[in-house]
Design a protein around this nucleic acid. Sequence first.
DNA 1: TTTTGTTTGTCTACTCGTCAAACAAATTGC
DNA 2: GCAATTTGTTTGACGAGTAGACAAACAAAA
Lengths: 404, 404
Amino acid sequence: MNASKSTVKSAAKRSGMSRTTTTRFAFTGNRSASNKTPREINRNLVFNLIRTRQPVSRADLARLSGLQRSTVSLIVEILIRERWIFEGSTGRLPRGRRPTFLHLNDQRAVVALDIHTSQTTVAVVDLGGKIVAQNIVVLPDDPRKAVTTIVREVKKVLAKNDRSFDGIGISVPGRPEPNPGHPVFTPRLKWSVVDLQTRLLRATGLRVKMENVANGCVLSEVWFGDSDGVHDLVVVNVSEGIGAGIFVNGRILRGKEGMAGEFGHIQIESEGPSCACGGTGCWESFASNRAGLRYYQEMSGKMAPSFEALLRLALSGDAVAVAAIEKMSQYLGRGLRMVGAALAPTEIVVVGEITNGWYLFGPTIEAEMKHNSLPGSPRLRPSVEASTARLRSAVALVMNEGSL
Amino acid sequence: MNASKSTVKSAAKRSGMSRTTTTRFAFTGNRSASNKTPREINRNLVFNLIRTRQPVSRADLARLSGLQRSTVSLIVEILIRERWIFEGSTGRLPRGRRPTFLHLNDQRAVVALDIHTSQTTVAVVDLGGKIVAQNIVVLPDDPRKAVTTIVREVKKVLAKNDRSFDGIGISVPGRPEPNPGHPVFTPRLKWSVVDLQTRLLRATGLRVKMENVANGCVLSEVWFGDSDGVHDLVVVNVSEGIGAGIFVNGRILRGKEGMAGEFGHIQIESEGPSCACGGTGCWESFASNRAGLRYYQEMSGKMAPSFEALLRLALSGDAVAVAAIEKMSQYLGRGLRMVGAALAPTEIVVVGEITNGWYLFGPTIEAEMKHNSLPGSPRLRPSVEASTARLRSAVALVMNEGSL
DNA sequence: TTTTGTTTGTCTACTCGTCAAACAAATTGC
DNA sequence: GCAATTTGTTTGACGAGTAGACAAACAAAA
């Protein structure tokens, strides 16, 4: 009704005035915030700081977070009551009153499963990412027996380790999108991950979370990596196939039905070997471990028993093995350039067996990646201890509510 | 010190108990929240609801947002005081007391610039996305004069339109990452966008924001599109080159130095025409408008004056023109399959001249995209009125604080 | 016309959570 | 022993959302 009141006379002159209203609008999602919201946010913040900086005092937390000491104290009290952390000693000593140091409660742990096509690692990982126990199991061929074996091993490890278990985190090849109704894409497994999930839940009563290998490594990197301000990161997993985990804007990019990051099935040549996905010329048929094995066979006429064996050959000086992996590395680099152009992450981390020969093939991969690349080309580095990363991801999987 | 108190006896048994603690942890960024944070979030929420649902009553807003009516009233009071909205009439009438309807204040507006290599559109767009005035300017070749011309036209449009202007939003080809120190990537422009930015700021005193064309279209789609729950969206801009704007997890994916989405420079064949980026076999050298023109020349020996002309030829039945654009469409589809595999968005929107011939070439593009694609293949559609989308993006650019 | 039921928007009391400042406790240096 | 420094807690003020009561406004039925 009083719209006439808001008539503006001279637009150009008024423009200066309208700038006094500094507030603008952003998309903050479509969930409303209550007066409990700040506590939720700050609780997360404080917990993550304790996780990454432990041992740490309340005063330190206040300085790191920007919150008042009193607020930090209240939040810490809750975290202690809920057994996420506890008070302990040892740490940097300041001049004045001795601080009480806070530690992550490493009595809390998760069961971690790192599933490969043939073997599976069952482990216990504590809240701080330490691998407390570890057990490699070779699975039987029969799908039913495979699942039963895993369940048995999990129960064994639960009984043996006297901890408070929060859940089970599983790393699988493929895309086990957890939303109901959505299909599960795990072409390399002979048995059903959904089946495993329900049977584990029934057998243990624990929450079970599954995740793609590459996404898992991303979570590990983000939770346990020493880099603080990780905002962009792509993990490329090179094994039998190639898949990527994409971390941008503080979250994993999942995409429809969890299929984001399937760079391995992007066609990089119109002609090429046919791929399991039905297409031809997919990146992974040029740059995966299986491609390396194929090149070796083509070059030498002989067949290497496994990629690990081929890599050992190359590292011990076999020229043909080197040439085969070199060719694979070139294609790897070319594909990584594609990843860089698509996403422009600050960093690409390569996970897979080839990282064991990084000093030999890393330069080739990187050179090919940087060749003719656009500005903003990412840093490239091999993952340190991929197995650890995959197991550690279980902690993040089970604990993580939001950015899962 | 009292860590002994937290020792847990039987892990397997206790696991059930630990589930009572339902709260988990997420990454919520590293900024702490104050007790003003909920207001900030809810203010955004309410404003966006008014923007998309106007005219709308306070009671409706409460229902839509999940907030209490009293809370909504307080927020609305602020928004009215700050002149973002005003009370008016007309709207759906319920049984009981007549509601007061809230409208966006369409006296507030921005100047929108849609810059192409040769011509530029200067427009006034109000808060609701309505294009109030529009003026197409052909720029002189001389870089300095080009910038001067734009500044002059902006001043003219400011003087002519009696509104309260909040800023200037500019859509440019290239990647004008606004962070200081970062390089600006606009290879198709002969003059400096940074120069334009500072001169516009000095001449008008208004805030100036620049954005890549594709990202701009994303913003338009998200701000003014009728789809509510847009969470994944990729806009692929096909003109002289090819670039994509990526919207995931409620934000634009920018990447290092704003370079994310440069799919056009991904190599899809190892052999092919050399590209401006220095590489060979880039997608855009097979699927951009310029590729279409090249195909036509190769097929007919004749040269079409522009892609628009070529498209007109095709639409009027010229078989060679159809064949040329058909070939371009096949490559376009193949590249879109790549975009789908990389990001798995729910929807891909194509922007560019070719959308004017969608009924002819759309099916080819879509068929090629779906061919051998993975599960979770995206929907594909042409953008309606690309020029409008680009101009409207100015509003989002100027108003948007967070997801810019 | 009157009555009844519905809907809107405001008001008030209450709760939650952060902040700021004061304060006590603990520790080092002089 | 005393001052300076640092930690962690306590207290009150303030901002913000919730829940429920309330009056006003209106439509439909009596």
